Computed example of a mutant assay.
Amino acid sequence: MQLRALTTTVALFAVATLATAAGTSPAARPAPAAVTQTVQPRTEPPVLVDCLWHPQVRPTDFMLACGDGNSRLASLHWTRWDAGRARAEGVNWVNDCKPYCAAGHFHAYPVTVRLDRTRPWKKQPQVSHYSRITLTYPAARPEQFGPTVSYPLWD
């Protein structure tokens, strides 16, 4: 009987030692403090939406006249492209449509391109896109254009 009491005491001591070494029981532990996670908004650059509804970033060419292709930007070299604005130098190829567009000739005009007015893109609202383009002609320009022209961009 004394052996049984001794065995029980040793067993209880061993269990108590293991429990202490392992820490307190999960039920006795305090709940962990709530972790607050800050979600950072995506900082992807805005896009320029092309005629086929593809998002473009710093394109080297861009069609301005999607319907007939009579005005396009080429050889674009971007010096700025951020959340507020984009800026490039390039060439605007414009059809003179004389005597009519199918028989007209394309002429190259040096141009400065500015993009601004970023907005969420309707097709992908999590993506921001430029909604206005401004063209500035430092020298020659198409006869029907002013020295600076602005157009809304499609959404």
Results as ranks from 00 to 15, higher is better:
residue 142 P to N: 03
residue 19 A to I: 02
residue 14 A to P: 07
residue 24 T to Q: 14
residue 48 L to D: 01
residue 79 T to C: 03
residue 143 E to K: 09
residue 111 V to P: 06
residue 132 R to T: 14
residue 47 V to G: 10
residue 81 W to V: 05
residue 104 G to C: 05
residue 76 L to H: 06
residue 16 A to I: 09
residue 54 H to T: 04
residue 86 A to G: 15
residue 81 W to L: 08
residue 59 P to D: 08
residue 104 G to M: 08
residue 127 V to I: 09
residue 4 R to N: 07
residue 44 E to S: 10
residue 69 G to V: 04
residue 17 T to L: 15
residue 54 H to E: 06
residue 37 Q to K: 13
residue 133 I to Q: 02
residue 14 A to D: 03
residue 122 K to F: 02
residue 95 N to K: 10
residue 46 P to K: 08
residue 142 P to K: 05
residue 28 A to D: 15
residue 23 G to Y: 13
residue 93 W to V: 00
residue 118 T to W: 01
residue 96 D to S: 07
residue 20 T to A: 13
residue 147 P to D: 11
residue 124 Q to N: 10
residue 120 P to M: 08
residue 29 R to Y: 03
residue 19 A to V: 11
residue 10 V to W: 10
residue 112 T to F: 08
residue 48 L to Y: 12
residue 123 K to E: 01
residue 152 P to M: 03
residue 13 F to G: 11
residue 56 Q to R: 15
residue 90 G to Q: 06
residue 19 A to F: 12
residue 1 M to K: 11
residue 138 P to S: 02
residue 123 K to H: 09
residue 114 R to G: 02
residue 132 R to V: 11
residue 98 K to L: 13
residue 121 W to P: 03
residue 82 D to S: 11
residue 92 N to Q: 14
residue 136 T to G: 00
residue 123 K to Q: 13
residue 94 V to H: 14
residue 115 L to V: 04
residue 97 C to Y: 06
residue 103 A to M: 13
residue 59 P to I: 02
residue 135 L to T: 00
residue 19 A to G: 11
residue 35 V to M: 08
residue 145 F to H: 14
residue 127 V to C: 00
residue 35 V to C: 01
residue 1 M to E: 11
